[in-house]
């Protein structure tokens, strides 16, 4: 069978040669459209979030009940001072989008990182060691998967109240399931490669095998899951906010703006479409960046 043939490319003799890996990485990145585009958009969003007070035309908290739900610029009845219109309480929608980027980015990235670390650690450990370790970790994974997030969220709200920290922690500590499951099976697959067996045979320490032989082979899967978890976390924050766990009003977040737009869905779809498009752009950028990083760091592209 063909799959018995050694997939030797990942041993990657090129790694030790030439300029340092980091500088090669950046050189390659510059020529890669996905990275340039994805990274560029992401950078703009990050800068927007950082400099929100300078960029926002209005105070995102200033409400004016007499100017509620003014439509955005492309619709009839819009006013020039509110380019993207106003929300249900008459707050400037553009300013809320700009400030909302802070919360959403924070939640998306922190959650993806926390849960990524947990999930990868569990998944790789289970996949690499197998046996009893695998059983214990499978137990943890299955228990987690069977536990509804809503239930945890409501309990935490009742116990300690809601806050931004609470939602990041809850999401980070709960959303590692997809990482763990995918990493586990990817590691199982990588572990059975001959070069891993070879490394073990020559007495390489486990941590080195995991870091230098297993990880490069499973990192693609990690990046893909991570890019989806960013969007997942941002949207989930919205539903948790509605249960009282997420950001506390009047602070805006994209997820919350989308969830609040639900009431206006049929007749004023722009209320939901504006934060929805913002989130789509963020997710797309993260994905393109992830894709690009995958392309240029993948073993098969290195020679």
């Amino acid at each position: 069978m063909a799959d018995a043939i050694v997939a030797g490319s990942a041993l990657d003799p090129a790694r030790a040669l030439g300029p340092s890996p980091t500088s090669r990485f950046f050189r390659r990145a510059r020529g890669h459209t996905s990275i340039m585009f994805g990274g560029g958009v992401l950078l703009v969003i990050v800068l927007t979030a950082l400099f929100a007070p300078l960029l926002a035309p209005h105070d995102p908290y200033a409400q004016d009940l007499f100017k509620r739900l003014l439509p955005p610029f492309w619709m009839d009845g819009s006013v020039p001072e509110h380019v993207l219109g106003t929300d249900n309480l008459g707050r400037d929608y553009l300013s809320r989008i700009i400030y909302g980027a802070r919360v959403s980015l924070l939640i998306g990235v922190c959650t993806a990182v926390i849960s990524g670390v947990i999930g990868t650690a569990l998944g790789v450990t289970a996949g690499y060691f197998g046996g009893r370790v695998d059983i214990v970790i499978t137990f943890i994974i299955t228990t987690r998967l069977s536990m509804p997030i809503v239930l945890v969220a409501l309990a935490i709200v009742a116990l300690v109240g809601g806050s931004l920290h609470a939602v990041v922690l809850v999401l980070g500590l709960l959303l590692w399931d997809r990482y763990a499951v995918v990493m586990r099976s990817a590691t199982q697959q990588a572990r059975s490669m001959d070069y891993v067996s070879a490394a073990r045979a020559i007495g390489c320490p486990t941590w080195r095998i995991v870091l230098s032989e297993i990880m490069p082979n499973v990192i693609n899967n990690l990046i893909i899951i991570a890019t989806f978890e960013v969007a997942h976390a941002i949207l989930l924050e919205a539903s948790l906010s509605f249960l009282g766990l997420g950001v506390q009003p009047p602070a805006p977040s994209w997820g919350l703006m989308i969830a609040e737009g639900k009431e206006f869905l049929l007749f004023d779809p722009w209320v939901i479409a504006i934060p929805g498009v913002a989130l789509s752009i963020l997710v797309l950028a993260v994905n393109m960046l992830g894709d690009g990083v995958r392309d240029i760091s993948a073993p098969e592209n290195r020679s």
Binding site: L265, S280, N287
Partner: peptide
Amino acid sequence: AVAGQAIPTFW
């Protein structure tokens, strides 16, 4: 596929 992930299910 990807951009649609930002669209909530109810929408």
